[in-house]
Simulated scan of single mutants.
Amino acid sequence: MDTRRVSADDLLILLEVARSGRLTRAAEVLGLSHTTVARRIESLERVLGSKVLVRTTTGWDLTPLGRRALRTAEQLDQALHELRTGDDDALLDDVVRLSTPDAFSVLVAAPAAARLRTRHPRLQIEIVSATRPAGTHRSGLDIEVVVGEPRVLRADAFKLASYTLGLFGSRDYLATHGAPESVRELTAHGLVYFIPSMLQIDDLDVGRRVVPEMRDAVTSTHVFAHVAATRAGAGLGLLPTFLAERHDDLVRVLPEEITGTVDYWLVTRTEALRRPAVAATVAQLKDSAAALSSGTAGNPVS
């Protein structure tokens, strides 16, 4: 280990790299060049005697030494915020980055972010809409909301909410093609659902299990496209009931026979959860997600 003292500035640079997962992003936020950020990280590693970052396929992740250094950096950052402002709201003068499935983004995450911003105007929340498994080394994100129970290491995970999948058709489609009265009659209808070859979440493969004989009609990676195609009469859509029931022109068919339950889970790293802004965002998401399980998410629309 180098005999020089650890630089507080270098620790704060490490903190920003850990938040974004990328040297270039950290450089933009800090107003520094990419080479300066890289040089300061190298300086920190020389003083500490080992690597604090390791390159992954999605950016940069922390080593065990890096995670220890990050805890010190977080404490330093918090102390500086308190010194500059002298109030508790400074703890939420931060950027929180989260990834969520598209329906959750629109009906839960975005309204939750708005409510937080009302109370904490200096808080910034970035929402990435994606339906994918929890990342093993996705250090650029503070929070991930995923479908199905995740298998993650060095992270905290808990179930946020559950929702139901049901089979729906538009009133016009059912009037023209007839409403199926049995599972056997479903073979006469096309299915609107996810693209099988691009489905990354095992829990969402329920569509292929509950209606295995239906042929694909319109498929998409986005659930709002499923809703739109079903409303336009492309076939019968296997849709989240909390989305479909917002539309008066959609009718559920065979509700007893065709149903499935899917869970939303939240994943966050322990070191991220120690940041007050992340903890506040997680708490708000918990409260907002409860409406999905209770069936009160959003108002019906035509």
Rank of each mutant, 00 (worst) to 15 (best):
T136S: 14
L107R: 07
E213I: 06
V17I: 13
S99G: 08
V282R: 09
A291K: 09
T270K: 13
L53C: 09
A114L: 15
L76C: 11
R184Y: 01
F168A: 10
P133H: 07
T259G: 11
R154F: 11
G237D: 08
A280I: 05
R68F: 00
L14H: 04
A290I: 05
V6T: 12
Q78C: 11
A114E: 15
V253D: 04
L292R: 07
R151I: 05
T187N: 07
H247P: 03
D89G: 14
G66C: 01
S197H: 13
D156H: 08
D88A: 13
A244M: 08
V223M: 11
V210E: 05
G31K: 13
T281W: 01
G233R: 07
S139D: 10
H177M: 03
L83G: 03
H247M: 06
D89C: 10
E213G: 11
L48M: 09
T296F: 11
S220T: 15
L204V: 03
E28Q: 13
I195Q: 13
V37W: 07
A161Q: 04
L92P: 01
V253H: 09
H222A: 11
V253L: 07
G298A: 05
P300D: 05
V146R: 01
S105F: 05
S50D: 04
V206G: 01
R132Y: 02
G135K: 04
G86K: 10
D203I: 06
T164S: 09
T281E: 03
E42H: 15
A228D: 05
L65N: 03
A289S: 15
V152S: 04
V146K: 00
R115G: 13
D172E: 15
H81V: 04
Q284C: 11
G260V: 08
T63P: 11
D156N: 14
P64E: 07
G166L: 01
T259R: 15
G148D: 12
E28N: 12
G235I: 05
M1E: 15
R84P: 00
P196I: 06
P300Q: 07
T187S: 13
A155T: 04
A26T: 09
V108K: 08
L266F: 00
V251P: 02
I195A: 12
L76P: 09
T131W: 06
G49N: 03
A188S: 11
V282S: 07
H247R: 11
S293G: 14
L285Y: 02
T230S: 14
A232L: 11
P240D: 15
E82V: 13
L239M: 07
S197F: 08
I41C: 12
A232R: 12
A272G: 02
G148V: 09
P255V: 04
A69H: 01
L266H: 00
S7K: 10
P255N: 12
I125P: 01
T176P: 02
R55W: 02
G207Y: 02
D89L: 15
V146W: 00
V106F: 13
A79E: 09
L160S: 00
L199Q: 15
L186Y: 08
A279S: 14
S293I: 03
L98C: 03
R40Y: 03
S105K: 07
E271L: 02
T241I: 03
R184P: 01
V146P: 06
G140H: 07
S33N: 09
A26K: 06
